[in-house]
Amino acid sequence: MTAPILEVRGLATHFFTRAGIVKAVDGVDLAVARGRVLGLVGESGSGKSVTGFSLIGLVDAPGRIVAGSIRLDGRELVGLPPAALRALRGRRIAMVFQDPMMTLNPVLRVGTQMAMALDAHAHLPRAARRIRCRDALGRVGIPSPDERLAAYPHQLSGGMRQRVAIAMALLNEPDMVIADEPTTALDVSIQGQIVHEMQRLVADTGIALLWITHDLAVVSALADDIAVMYAGRIVERGPARDVLAEPRHPYTRGLLDSVPGEVPPGGRLPQIPGSTPALRELPPGCAFRGRCGRASAACTTMPELPAGERSVRCHHPL
């Protein structure tokens, strides 16, 4: 494996609310190399989206990064002044959001919004700007890009809008793209197209892609590596094939078992008992132990996540 373009160590992002400190992200390690796709998998509330926003330095108050390091191509991002971070955003590291209906400004033309994204990092003459925008739209498989540039977001379908958003993220040719559940809000058929498109883009451009999702089916089609997140921590990671074929953490096992299609028709779909714990009052030890069939007294101390490509944070791995 080549040297990673993005390397995250011990990242912790906490929210200081009136009701207490919410440790949404609490010691996350990640690494993504150029031309690779890392799938960050977890349920809602596991901290995977906050991880994504932490990486581009857009954590909303009252949250903030309290510890850890984020290195992009060797450069430390944590503690960087806001202006320096802004210059990196969109240029070196970009992000695609979950709901394409909400990510584009309804009262501005697509072309205007793309031009603003370009202008944030380079001053191009009008004609060159237009060509860049048109090419970007063409690259994500949007037909007749000139028309789309003049369109308002409401004139485009959801899938088309998400393609526009992806085109905007790629506009300044970043090294790294974070995609926060970009297909969740779309029809299944459109999902497939977008996943396919992303795969092609990664192969063509050599960008690194962090794909955040709760959907294991999507990850299995796309990701080279997988990191499974639970209650603000990575509980298991490794090459996608290995993790999917031989999950070692009981939580990953549970997730895989509850994907329909693994069970014969008419059979009962297994589910993980209980629900995600409230992050505000996490008891010490393994956060999953309350829902785990294998939990023991040992689980009241937090298991470590060993270094290495394939590892699991569990006292009693499968």
Binding site: I56, R89, R91, A94, M95, M116, A117, M168, N172
Partner: peptide
């Protein structure tokens, strides 16, 4: 948020 993510 998306605009900020693009570095505006």
């Amino acid at each position: 948020r998306f605009a900020r993510a693009q570095g505006l």
